[in-house]
Design a protein around this nucleic acid. Sequence first.
DNA 1: CATGAAACTTTACCCCTGTAAAATTTCTTT
DNA 2: AAAGAAATTTTACAGGGGTAAAGTTTCATG
Lengths: 341, 341
Amino acid sequence: MAGRKVNTMEELAEVSGISRPTLSKYFNDPDSVRETTRGKIKIALERYDYRPNIFAINQNRKLTKTIGIVVPYSADPFFAEIVRMIERRCIDAGFWPLVFSSHGQQELENNALATLQSLRPAGALIAPLGRSSDFESVQSFAEEVPTIVFDSNVNVGEAFVGSDNSQSIGLIVNYLCRTGEPPCFFEMAPVNPNANKRRDAYIKTMQALGHDPMVLQVDGAGWDFENIGLKEGNRLMVERKLPSETVLCSNDRLAVGLIAAAYQNDIKVGYGEGCSLRIAGHDDHPQSQFTCPPLTTVAQDYSSIAEHSVELLFGMINGESRTADRPEVLFEGKLIMRESA
Amino acid sequence: MAGRKVNTMEELAEVSGISRPTLSKYFNDPDSVRETTRGKIKIALERYDYRPNIFAINQNRKLTKTIGIVVPYSADPFFAEIVRMIERRCIDAGFWPLVFSSHGQQELENNALATLQSLRPAGALIAPLGRSSDFESVQSFAEEVPTIVFDSNVNVGEAFVGSDNSQSIGLIVNYLCRTGEPPCFFEMAPVNPNANKRRDAYIKTMQALGHDPMVLQVDGAGWDFENIGLKEGNRLMVERKLPSETVLCSNDRLAVGLIAAAYQNDIKVGYGEGCSLRIAGHDDHPQSQFTCPPLTTVAQDYSSIAEHSVELLFGMINGESRTADRPEVLFEGKLIMRESA
DNA sequence: CATGAAACTTTACCCCTGTAAAATTTCTTT
DNA sequence: AAAGAAATTTTACAGGGGTAAAGTTTCATG
């Protein structure tokens, strides 16, 4: 690509001696042109630096190669990780993933959806804000764009992929009850359906095991979960209002904050000798193995969720699976026993 | 937006009674049309759901409203946070930020740059991979697109914005020396210029203070820093090869791993009574305040870096500041004294 | 009310590629 | 070598909106 800069396919046609429509075919699928032709094109491409204009391409194709990914908060470790996996798979499949973060705000979520829609993407994978989502916006988006909803199950789109909170919470509550004092449940005012499901699952499991559920719902808005865990944990510890020596947190980030609070109050966390507080989380964030003590938690099946979401979407895009019903695929959580509980 | 769906500006012109060129003006700048006209357009927009086709817009405009953001690893807390801030500012300024993550791989970085270039963005903010960047690709990109480089200073683009590693490392080394045993320096094989600058600054500062520098360079590839800190830290502790009771880590993620290693080896970390190891980091990642003990570190000035990068870029885009030289703007780090050192 | 500037409409052409249809060439097959 | 299939070229139009030029309307001003 040393030669002069070639800006349009027309120009490339001139210098390569290949007609523009054939070039167009080539760029859509190199294997769709004769091998000798392909060779000539490749040689031309080495000599002249050319790259098709994405805007012009997408303006005419009915089906874009764009895939939209919308998450509530891109800096959250769970979403950062799952987005990373989804992106990878899209790229491998020859698609072009575009990530939008709502930063926790309805306005930005609507914005992202609107922008995305005007990009006429082949499909979208969205994890809605949940309670603060503008339901109508999300719905009207999903009517136009093939959409898979993941993580937070609001009732739109063609399918939902997420974790079986009922199973996963059941799992860890059971574990905690078998190995020590029954846990209380530490949560913030729920921001999405997951939070509600987790609490309900906690209550149900506790009752099934013959224990009284103890739900601690603390205040706090936004996505600064660790801080809320720290502040409210601190308060509860200072005021000695923790109803149990075992605390199950609604998610790992709260647990991280709570562990920090325990440290500040000289409370030793763990399941072993000399420990006076057990703390468990939910999700198995990437950093949860590095807390002190390492966090006992339930792992969400990141890679299955990512893979299955993407597969479902590709299926829809290829028109394979237009089912009338809206399947909900739930993956089971795995108990991750570490030292904190 | 209840009425029938309007797909093109032409159609909107019909139903609104406003000519298409005027509508075009309106969408480029609502204030450029007469108020009565603006009113009519707004009313039409409420009745008919219409949004200009982004592809068509960008195909024709010489200057796109797109801003590319390329980072080496989107799931890294530092980048997650700084991207969040940059995105916000771009959106507020009416631009359309597109985030690409290289996931640590040269191929993906090249890919991102190529894709981005074909989007003809108004400008780009890139944090290159550093040592594994394909320098030529980055350079040829920066020649076409107004580019600000941040975080990792490879010598391309119109300007660099980052942290003054020399100052920040000097600061914390000084602090550590004044408050206890001089630190050794814990790092991985450097992946970018920052790592080198930090080590060099460490050595220089130690020498200036009359101490012998002790650099521990551990193996490890990829972006799994905490794990490397944990594994290598474990090894060093088990083999009793830590040359000092104070360890300054090249970044917070390594420090998080090292703190976990100390915990596993029953080594109490902190500056107070009964502690036998001090650990400090660099960057002040969002989660560093929640480690146990909370991490003493040097804070990079996230918001200044984000703001200044964006401002410089906007300046270039508006043609204000085409300086011949390539300014390098460095922000100072702030010492964050917590309990770990 | 006349005047001129500002805003608007009309008309027309441009951007760059997709894509369909018909005509031509190339390759494969018998 | 002739026929047929496959690939290519030619031709032509479409997509949705930017934008310039010329003509028309609107508005503020004197």
